[in-house]
Simulated scan of single mutants.
Amino acid sequence: MPAADLDDLDRAILRKLQEDSRTIAETIGAEVGLSAAAVQRRIKRLRASGVISREVAVLDPEAVGIGMTFVVTVEMERERLEVLDAFRKQARAEPAVQQCYYVTGSTDFVLVVNCRDMTEFEAFTRRMFFDNGEVRHFTTGVVMDRVKVGLTVPLNGC
């Protein structure tokens, strides 16, 4: 669904669902001025069109024993399509990789990685980087403080 097809009511519903996807249609409807049935129809359309791609539980990593977060920049040996695609596939398959971005500039990828501790991170680096002959260089930053973590999309622009 193109962004132009979203009206103000769709955006209001999406904002509410991004805050808490368990908010019931009656509550959303009361806030945006629609019936619960109309809200449910719109949510169904937003799901079917792919605007709502997934609905998940967001966990606190420390609460489940994942105490460390790393930001890793990766420079590949060659920028050939098959090399980039292979790394994308490897990153998607790796549970420790929370986010992976293919970027412009001096590096090729930026990863956000969660691990229990440094020992687990070292094992991760062996699998992802040292065992991959196409990785030229990687740099790791250890996250000191989770200042802001989110996946909400700004619906009124940046």
Rank of each mutant, 00 (worst) to 15 (best):
Asp7Phe: 05
Arg126Lys: 13
Ala30Trp: 09
Lys16Asp: 02
Gly141Cys: 06
Val64Lys: 04
Phe124Thr: 13
Asp131Trp: 08
Leu46Gly: 02
Arg45Asp: 03
Thr119Asp: 15
Val103Glu: 15
Asp7Cys: 08
Phe130Gln: 07
Glu31Tyr: 04
Arg80Asp: 11
Arg41Thr: 07
Leu9Lys: 09
Val153Glu: 03
Leu6Gln: 03
Tyr101Pro: 06
Gly133Asn: 13
Asn132Ser: 04
Ala96Ser: 14
Ala37Tyr: 11
Phe129His: 05
Asp60Leu: 11
Pro154Val: 01
Met68Ser: 13
Glu75Leu: 10
Lys44Cys: 01
Asp108Thr: 09
Ala3Cys: 02
Lys148Thr: 03
Glu134Met: 11
Leu34Cys: 02
Gln90Glu: 09
Arg41Val: 15
Lys16Phe: 01
Met68Gln: 12
Arg126Tyr: 15
Arg116Gly: 11
Val143Lys: 14
Arg92Lys: 06
Val51Pro: 00
Phe130Lys: 05
Asp85Lys: 10
Ala91Ile: 15
Asp5Pro: 03
Ile43Trp: 05
Arg80Pro: 06
Leu9Cys: 03
Leu14Trp: 02
Gly150Thr: 07
Pro61Cys: 09
Phe138Ser: 12
Phe70Ile: 01
Asn156Gly: 08
Ala91His: 01
Val58Pro: 01
Asp85Cys: 10
Val51Ser: 00
Met128Val: 13
Met76Pro: 05
Asp60His: 10
Ala123Lys: 09
Thr23His: 08
Ile43Pro: 04
Gly157Ile: 14
Ala4Thr: 14
Ala63Thr: 03
Ala93Met: 11
Gly133Val: 02
Val72Phe: 11
Thr27Tyr: 09
Val143Arg: 06
Ser53Tyr: 00
Phe109Leu: 05
Arg41Ala: 05
Val103Leu: 13
Leu6Ala: 05
Ile24Pro: 03
Cys158His: 05
Cys100Arg: 07
Leu111Gln: 07
Ala63Lys: 14
Met128His: 13
Leu111Tyr: 05
Met1Pro: 01
Val39Leu: 05
Arg47Phe: 00
Gly65Pro: 04
Asp8Gly: 02
Lys16Trp: 00
Met1Thr: 10
Ala12Asp: 06
Leu34Gln: 04
Lys89Phe: 01
Thr152Met: 10
